[in-house]
């Protein structure tokens, strides 16, 4: 079994997080935003698991399970919102919904 060092996991997780962050800031398409958020969450989950293994502490695994469950719920709610948004506006571009401002 190849012994992968912990920093490799941390590095991959950081790259995932950064890609997700970049996606959240630059995209206006709602579906892409959801995907980017998933990337951020997965980056964080990977980080949890990596450190859990490194410290031989199962707490990180438990948190990851919770995180995945919450992410699933979030994705469901988010998709539902965008489906409704599409019905009204025929678009999922978030800059088209600017009614919640001054």
């Amino acid at each position: 079994m190849i012994d992968v060092p912990t920093y490799a996991f941390v590095g991959v997780s950081a790259i995932l997080f950064a890609i997700g962050l970049f996606g959240v800031i630059t995209n206006t398409n709602g579906i892409r935003l959801l995907i980017s958020i998933e990337l951020i969450l997965n980056g964080a989950n990977l980080n949890f698991v990596a450190f859990s293994a490194h410290h031989a502490d199962p707490a990180g695994l438990v948190y990851t399970l919770f995180s995945i469950a919450i992410a699933a719920a979030e994705a469901a709610v988010g998709l539902a919102i965008f489906i409704n948004l599409f019905r009204y506006k025929q678009t999922v571009n978030v800059t088209s919904v600017k009614t919640m401002r001054w």
Partner: peptide, 17 residues
């Protein structure tokens, strides 16, 4: 100050970050 409330979600996200 109310002009800061653009209503654009990504602006808020960027501000938070």
């Amino acid at each position: 100050m109310r002009t800061w409330q653009t209503g654009v979600v990504t602006t808020y996200a960027a501000t938070v970050i």
